[in-house]
Computed example of a mutant assay.
Amino acid sequence: MTGTTLVDTSTGLASNYTVSNPTGLTASITPASLLVRATNAASRVYDTTTNASVTLGDNRIAGDVLTISNSGASFAHKNAGANKTVTVNGIALGGADADNYIVNTTATTTASITQAALGVKVDNAEKDQGRANPAFTASYTGLLGGDTLANEVSGNLAFSTPATTGSPAGSYVVSAAGQASTNYALTYTPGVLTVNPTEALQSAVASVISAVNLAPSQGNMVQAEVVAKGETVTSKEDVVQSNQPQQGSAPVVQTTASVNSNVLPGLRLSVVDTGLRLPMETGNTSIESQ
């Protein structure tokens, strides 16, 4: 320290003193406190991890050269949710002016984790007409990492379809619903239930086709009224007698032996062994309309 002098006041006594500069004085400059803040954390989609992305800010003195590092930012847990706490750990300073500051080692902010997509596709199924609906199943797509349905999805998957035991052959939509998840947004895609004709119906249709294709060429035909009387037909000669089908008589069908009548759903016919009996009609009703 140099340049120390005495200043005389109104007493005029300064001239009675001499002054010397002090020596050996010391003092300290303590580091300033630097507050590192987590100014923004990015919200993201659920990915099974706690990883977070954060932007940091601080209150350094203008012009000072500093770098700020950290050991990572993370959510408190992996699950989806809104305004979740994000913590930045291991904050440290570098740069030319790092020694002039002390810094907080952690900082917090909030961000959200939104649900990931989980697809639920109802599997297609088949059944025969007249039978109960099968046990429906579904396939899941979109589970991440080591996640399992048992751990991530709750509730019972419920299937619905307009098809019943008595539904005719055709295609029916099968829908699903009823489950929920914290980390996944479930999207349901319907499947298709195909109701096939019963075996008896398929056989009868095949017989119809056979009768239509073969009977006219072979002449193996009998009048439906013969069948209606319950008569047994063992050969063509038993039927082809002197009387022929008259105007307005019943349609004729192929047959080979005794009658075995069956009522089939959706068809107005009876099975006659390998043939069929068409209902009697008046007028010009065509076979196709029967």
Rank of each mutant, 00 (worst) to 15 (best):
I113Y: 08
G94L: 07
A111S: 08
L93A: 11
D97W: 06
A117N: 15
A82C: 10
G81Q: 10
V86D: 11
D99F: 09
K127G: 09
K78Q: 14
T87W: 06
I102T: 14
N104C: 13
T85L: 12
K78G: 11
G94Q: 10
I91H: 01
I91M: 03
D123H: 03
G95R: 11
A125G: 05
V120T: 04
A107N: 04
T106I: 15
A125P: 06
N89I: 10
D99T: 08
G94K: 07
K121M: 12
A96R: 11
V86Q: 04
D123M: 01
N100D: 09
A96K: 12
I91N: 03
N100R: 15
T87L: 10
D99I: 05
N100W: 08
K121Y: 15
Q115C: 02
A80Q: 07
A82L: 15
T85C: 03
G95P: 00
A116H: 14
A92I: 10
K78R: 09
L93T: 10
T106E: 12
T114L: 03
T114N: 15
A107G: 04
V120P: 09
A98Y: 01
N104H: 12
T85P: 08
A111K: 01
T109Y: 00
D123F: 02
L93V: 07
V86I: 09
T114R: 10
A98L: 03
T106A: 11
A107Q: 05
D97V: 02
V88P: 00
E126S: 12
G95Y: 08
T110G: 13
A111T: 02
T85G: 04
Y101S: 13
A98G: 01
N83E: 13
N124R: 08
A98M: 07
V88Q: 05
A116M: 05
V103Y: 04
A117L: 15
K78A: 15
T114E: 01
E126L: 08
G81C: 14
E126P: 00
L118I: 01
N104I: 14
A98Q: 14
G94E: 07
A111D: 08
A111H: 02
A107E: 12
N104D: 14
A125F: 11
A82Y: 13
A125V: 08
I91V: 06
N83T: 05
S112C: 07
L93H: 09
V86F: 03
G119F: 12
Q115G: 03
N104T: 14
E126G: 04
V86M: 05
T85I: 14
I113T: 05
Y101F: 07
V120R: 06
G81Y: 13
G81I: 02
T108N: 14
D123I: 01
T110W: 05
A80K: 04
E126D: 13
I113F: 09
K84F: 12
L118S: 08
A80I: 03
A107L: 04
N100F: 09
E126C: 02
A117Q: 13
G119E: 09
T114V: 07
V88A: 09
G119V: 00
K78H: 11
G119R: 04
N104V: 14
N83H: 07
S112M: 09
I102N: 09
T109P: 00
